[in-house]
Amino acid sequence: MRAAFVRTLMALAAQDPRIMLLAGDLGYMALEPFRDQFPGRFINVGVAEQNMVGVATGLADAGFIPFVYSIAPFAALRPYEFIRNGPIQHQLPVRIVGMGGGFEYGTNGLSHYGLEDLGVMRIQPGITVIAPADHQQAETALRASWHLPGPIYYRLGKDDKTVVPGLDGRFSLDTLECVGEGPHLLMITTGSIASEAAAAAQALAAQGVPGTLLVAATLRPAPCEELAGWLARFAAVMTVEAHYREGGLGSLVAEVIAERGLRCRLVRCGVGAVLDGLSGSQSYLHQKYGLAREALVARALQTVRAQPA
């Protein structure tokens, strides 16, 4: 998604001189094409994310559309109060790009993981929160949202090869994208872990337990009506996210189920505590925290079998 983001942003920037790109000294081997083509509209502000968001707020107030770029926790958490009191409070079009998310920076350790970015962003009123599932959807999502009036948080993955089968880059604000239908279970996913969820869904279908898989790329404003419609049709739903179990997609689904009084059992696949200091590759960490496709299949089968006949 990183290359797709830069490529798409360059195409948009060629058409609209308001677009700027600010980086917090990250983006080596990724942002250079933008820097080289639009030297006056790219600033490496240094390792200073709070200032980056504050400056972007001042730029946006004067008519620019600044994108600020860093690794997810440094983009979302370090300057969080600046985001809240700046572009959110003033309703200005600052775009916060959190690269990675989940365990994409696996061997770098907890400091580099994005495990609560979606949660802390989606509780803020007045911000749009978008987590595309693959690079095709990232491009569509950016083209569909870059011009919105208020702030946006984008959680983007690094992977520019993997695609979610059946998604075909579809994206529109406020909607869920269905990438496979089956009667046994509803699965909902967000962000780049969607490819694992899709692989799990395919394996379930191969075992004669086909389920329905939805991609929720916009978590705020949440597609609550559509979500409730899907949830009403299933006895159980399983959410899959590379995020803490609290605060993100699973919590959103729980809110919809509870507030609408739906009879749908919720199983949240997400990350528990990451406090043991053990790191490794992204796939190792997905396995460790129950997010690899095999674990998702097992959890889905367990959920389906637990339902009353």
Partner: peptide, 25 residues
């Protein structure tokens, strides 16, 4: 009032953005 404030240590960054915008424009 050009910008809301109240949390200390944030306003100079907003002003720097405003100054940079003026120069770019």
């Amino acid at each position: 009032v050009d910008f809301a404030t109240g949390s200390l240590g944030q306003g100079v960054a907003l002003a720097a953005g405003a100054a940079l915008a003026a120069r770019l424009q």
